[in-house]
């Protein structure tokens, strides 16, 4: 079943068209990798999926994005609820300057949960799901900025999981991390697929091959090729995909 469907999606930053007639169907509980050279529109596309582009002045969007069969750009959509269900993890780990516990409890609190017992339960479950519990369980009250880069990124994933989303959007989540932390995040992302749908932007072709089920290749705002990852990386249909993934242009 497809959890997200984009149809004929176009996006302009003022007069510059950043997305051109994108058609993508994202199956539930799979990992979709978005690849392409810098400026190709992959991060822009990612942000259209939970309306993060709404925050940028001068943005105009046409076409449609449906989440669980409902148009997310329809009038009256609760954007805050949409972003609860479709969470986001950014390139650079961005924990809030507060304790590990408060970082994870932040989302649930803003959604009205105040019970100490309930919050404890959510914090522990989220940290466990993000495979960082064992590393931070004795320092929950310490400032999150004291964690390593890899730990901070897993904390951000725990923070995203705390509000029980259905989809996680990840914008190059390992590009600022060392190989060990990268492989921990990759393992984590792969295990999260059991419960969540993941869409990940990556510049690391090997990462796309390792973790994703399907891959979308963007170039100059167009979706050039979208399909099964293994097939795309062994016999791409499009010459331009081949040129990019083999490192011969882009």
């Amino acid at each position: 079943m497809n959890i997200i469907t984009a149809k004929d999606l176009c996006l302009w930053y003022d007069t510059l068209q950043a997305l051109k007639n994108i058609d993508v169907e994202i199956p539930e509980k799979t990992i979709t990798a978005l690849i392409g050279p810098s400026g190709c529109g992959k991060s822009t596309f990612l942000k259209t999926l939970n309306r993060m582009n709404d925050l940028i002045p001068g943005v105009k969007i046409t076409g449609s994005v449906c989440y669980q069969g409902k148009e997310i750009y329809a009038p009256g959509v609760d954007v805050s609820e949409l972003r609860r269900q479709i969470g986001m993890v950014f390139q650079k780990p961005n924990p809030f300057p507060m304790s590990v516990y408060d970082n994870v409890a932040y989302g649930p609190r803003t959604h009205g949960i105040t019970s100490r017992v309930k919050l404890n339960e959510i914090v522990e479950r989220s940290l466990r799901n993000a495979v960082i519990w064992d590393e931070v369980k004795d320092r929950l009250r310490k400032n999150a900025l004291g964690l390593s880069g890899g730990q901070q990124q897993r904390l951000c994933i725990a923070r995203a999981l705390a509000v029980e989303p259905q989809v996680l959007l990840m914008d190059e989540p390992t590009s600022a991390l060392d190989p060990i932390s990268t492989s921990k995040i990759e393992e984590l992302v792969t295990s999260l697929k059991e419960k969540y749908t993941i869409v990940i932007v990556t510049h690391n072709m090997q990462q796309a091959v390792r973790i994703s089920d399907q891959t979308a290749f963007f170039l100059l705002g167009e979706l050039i090729e979208y399909g099964n990852t293994e097939q795309m990386f062994s016999k791409p249909k499009e010459k331009r995909t081949e040129g990019y993934i083999t490192g011969r242009f882009g």
Binding site: V209, S234, K235, P236, T241, I245, T246
Partner: peptide
């Protein structure tokens, strides 16, 4: 080189 596509083949 961690080749892909035609290079890998």
């Amino acid at each position: 080189q961690q080749p892909v596509a035609r290079d890998l083949r």
